[in-house]
């Protein structure tokens, strides 16, 4: 075999040593990325806790609600905000469960933080944050908990798959033929 022999999947010929090393490093890098991604849920929950703390103290760094009302007009009434909030929570959970069921590799979770912050803000400006703070917080924990669990499972399966590929590469000198 020559040093620059081309990889032929039909014959299952082992890769040259340096190309094997590149593949090995690629797989290890994928594992590293997946490990980092598996913590996305934890980061999202931490960010939710931080924003909830700001909301609990009524957004001390922002202007008063009267200023927002003066510039942006009257906010929707609390019952309307609650209806929209329930609909959002319901469909966010349904979406997460459907992604879990179909195994879709989607890692975006921080958009939910933006939506929840929006709901905190709307309740704050409407003067109903004291009554509805815990509802928004509980919804955030639920949605981010389910999404974080889904992402963690996805990453765990990806890590196992990559470990199998790595073991195969080290045993046979090439990647599995189905790739």
């Amino acid at each position: 075999m020559t040093y620059l022999q081309q990889y032929d999947p039909a014959t299952g010929t082992p890769e040259p040593k340096d190309k094997r090393e590149v593949l090995r490093l690629d797989i290890l890098n994928d594992i590293k990325i997946l490990r980092r991604r598996s913590l996305t849920g934890a980061w999202a929950l931490s960010l939710l806790l931080l924003i909830s703390t700001f909301a609990w103290w009524r957004f001390p760094l922002l202007p008063l609600p009267e200023t927002f009302i003066a510039y942006l007009g009257t906010p929707p009434s609390p019952p309307v905000i609650s209806i929209v909030f329930i609909i959002y929570t319901f469909f966010a959970i349904i979406l997460s469960l459907s992604r879990m069921m179909s195994g879709i590799e989607y890692y975006g979770i921080f958009s939910h933080i933006a939506y929840l912050t929006g709901f905190f803000f709307f309740y704050h400006v409407a003067g109903a944050l004291d009554d509805n703070f815990w509802a928004v917080f509980a919804a955030g924990i639920t949605i981010l908990g389910v999404e974080g669990y889904r992402i963690r499972q996805l990453c765990h399966e990806g890590i196992l798959r990559n470990r199998e590929r790595l073991a195969y590469l080290e045993k046979t000198g090439r990647l599995p033929t189905d790739e």
Binding site: S82, M100, A128, A135, Q153
Partner: peptide, 28 residues
Amino acid sequence: GRALVPVGLTVTGFMVVCCLLLYSAIRN
């Protein structure tokens, strides 16, 4: 664990949210 954890978390969370909002509406 993999079958029951998402179900438990989802159902519990959604019920808690609904009850909190309902209680808030009743109190107001």
